[in-house]
Amino acid sequence: MEKKRSHDMLSKIGYRRMTAEDLFLDLFIYISLLSLCVITLYPFINTIAYSFNDAIDSVSGGIYLWPREFTLRNYEKILVGNKAISQALFISISRTITGGVLGVFATLCVAYVLSRRDFVFRKVFTPFLVFTMYFSGGLIPTFILMRDLHLINTFWVYILPTMVGAYNIMFMRSYIEGIPDSFTEAAKIDGASEYRILFTIIFPLSLPVVATITLFVAVHQWNAWFDTMIYNGMNPKLSTLQYELQKLLTSALSIAATDTDATLASGDSQKAAVTPMSIRTAMTVISVTPILFVYPFLQKYFIKGLTLGGVKG
């Protein structure tokens, strides 16, 4: 509080002596930051505009901030007419929910135990976990392991390998360590079990960090595509939205130098047509929308969490 007030005072002093240097600097900063916003947002807006524009009309380009020939056909084609993509959407939602719930549960349990200074294996389990942050067995040995565990071609290959994440545990542990012992002392004297302490005292007190970890885990699950490609690429029933998008993208990129979208579109019938580009833009919008609605609300929590992590080094 004290610091904030003196910072305000400071800015008043600053304003009183507005020199040419100040003016120049402010101008430079505001213009730079505004252009950053434009550069960040424009590609999204442009993609949205294309996704709502008639596919054949889009081929001629020149669409910037809003659609020229408005249509919902691109979305219709994906969400109504396309079984593969609606199945992929279902799997994406399933893995986000399942992975999110299990991941946060695992993180909370392990983080609580490792936050206890009297825990008998604290000095063994902590480095055991931290080591995995810097080191991995590599792509091929991991692939062979999944094969030997018979996880390939199953839904669980999305959930189990990443369920216990060292980074998230360390993040949550440092938060739980900050909770004063006085909160749990009374319960301990009453002889409450560890489970009770964790779920009725620690959990409610850790809601900000639980929200942050939920965001991280859910976003990771929603965005994942590589595991789909290598483990379940042959199984359309287990495909995910991001993987479907990746396939469209790769087929477009492999002919990067030429104008794919135009050549592919001209072959189609002119009526009710969609092009790879129109489908791709609509799918991009669908896969970004949930994130767009969630992260701004959790912003203050993850910034606090990151700041804490940063101070601790």
Binding site: R116, F119, G137
Partner: peptide, 28 residues
């Protein structure tokens, strides 16, 4: 501390399997 162990040992086994077992594959 058996309750604490119940809370974390199962997940440590996950870490052992998914993060440490692949190192065995280095023999390949």
């Amino acid at each position: 501390q058996r309750q604490l162990l119940v809370l974390c040992v199962p997940f440590m086994i996950f870490v052992l399997i998914f993060n440490y077992f692949p190192i065995w594959g280095w023999i390949m």
